[in-house]
Amino acid sequence: MTIDELDAKLLSLLTSEPRLGVLECSRRLGVARGTVQARLDRMIAREVITGFGPDVSPAALGYGVTAFVTMEIRQIAGHDPVLHGLARIPEVLEVHTITGGSDLLCRVVARSNPDLQRVIDQIVAVQGVLRTSSIIALDNPVPYRVLPLVADVPRHRGGRS
């Protein structure tokens, strides 16, 4: 197990109130400031915590359309050349290698449906992309979250299920 109950409480606190400082976290958790700092440092080193930046809404930046694009790629040279090409397209927010009938899954944003066509055209122009399929997201009723996993850690402590 990568985190224990205190780590879970600290992560829950920082997830619900990300602007809290180490001193306030230590006060609320009832532990020394050095303990909180050491726990944060350890979780950063183990890549449990992957960032502290603000979550930015693409819609607030004018990108109101979200789509998921699957693609088949020419795998002679592997994934890397395609991944490098996709990384140069600002509207490609993330890319996952996947199993099944396609090779990659991308979350992309666009300003409108016609703009989505422009983004898809850029994706298709990447050397090695053979075919794409797109699904437009209508709503995001359960946004990306990890707090339920963090809250579940004490229950599964020690590898028990």
Score class of each variant (00 low, 15 high):
Met1Asp: 08
Met1His: 10
Ile3Lys: 06
Glu5Ser: 15
Leu6Met: 14
Asp7Ala: 06
Ala8Gln: 02
Ala8Lys: 03
Ala8Gly: 13
Ala8Leu: 08
Lys9Phe: 01
Lys9Met: 08
Lys9Ile: 01
Thr15Arg: 03
Ser16Arg: 11
Glu17Phe: 02
Arg19His: 09
Arg19Pro: 05
Gly21Asn: 13
Gly21Phe: 00
Leu29Cys: 09
Gly30Glu: 03
Gly30Val: 12
Gly30Cys: 12
Thr35Met: 06
Val36Pro: 01
Val36His: 06
Gln37Ile: 02
Arg39Cys: 11
Ile44Ser: 13
Ala45Thr: 13
Ala45Val: 10
Ala45Met: 05
Gly53Lys: 10
Pro54Thr: 10
Asp55Ala: 07
Val56Pro: 00
Val56Trp: 04
Val56Ser: 06
Pro58Ser: 10
Ala59Glu: 12
Leu61Gln: 04
Gly62Arg: 01
Gly62Ser: 05
Tyr63Phe: 15
Thr66Gly: 03
Ala67Lys: 00
Phe68Gln: 05
Thr70Gly: 05
Met71Thr: 12
Glu72Arg: 15
Glu72Asp: 11
Glu72Tyr: 04
Ile73Tyr: 01
Arg74Thr: 03
Arg74Met: 11
Arg74Glu: 15
Gln75Lys: 11
Gln75Ile: 07
Ile76Phe: 00
His79Phe: 15
Asp80Cys: 00
His84Leu: 12
Leu86Ala: 03
Leu86Arg: 04
Leu86Asn: 10
Ala87Gln: 11
Ala87His: 15
Ile89Tyr: 14
Pro90Thr: 11
Glu91His: 03
Val92Leu: 01
Val92Trp: 00
Val92Ser: 00
Glu94Ser: 12
Val95Pro: 04
His96Thr: 06
Thr97Cys: 05
Asp103Thr: 03
Asp103Tyr: 09
Leu105Gly: 08
Leu105Pro: 10
Cys106Met: 15
Arg107Glu: 07
Val109Ser: 10
Ala110His: 00
Ala110Leu: 01
Pro114Val: 04
Leu116Tyr: 07
Leu116Pro: 01
Arg118Lys: 07
Ile120Leu: 14
Asp121Ala: 14
Asp121Gln: 11
Gln122Asn: 12
Gln122Phe: 00
Ile123Tyr: 02
Ala125Thr: 08
Val126Pro: 08
Gln127Glu: 14
Gly128Ser: 05
Gly128Leu: 09
Val129Glu: 15
Arg131Lys: 15
Ser134Ile: 00
Ile136Val: 15
Ile136Gln: 13
Ile136Cys: 08
Asn140Pro: 01
Pro141Asn: 13
Val142Cys: 02
Val142Met: 07
Pro143Phe: 07
Tyr144Leu: 13
Arg145Pro: 00
Val150His: 04
Asp152Lys: 12
His156Ala: 04
Arg157Phe: 07
Gly159Ala: 03
Arg160Lys: 13
Ser161Val: 11
Ser161Cys: 08
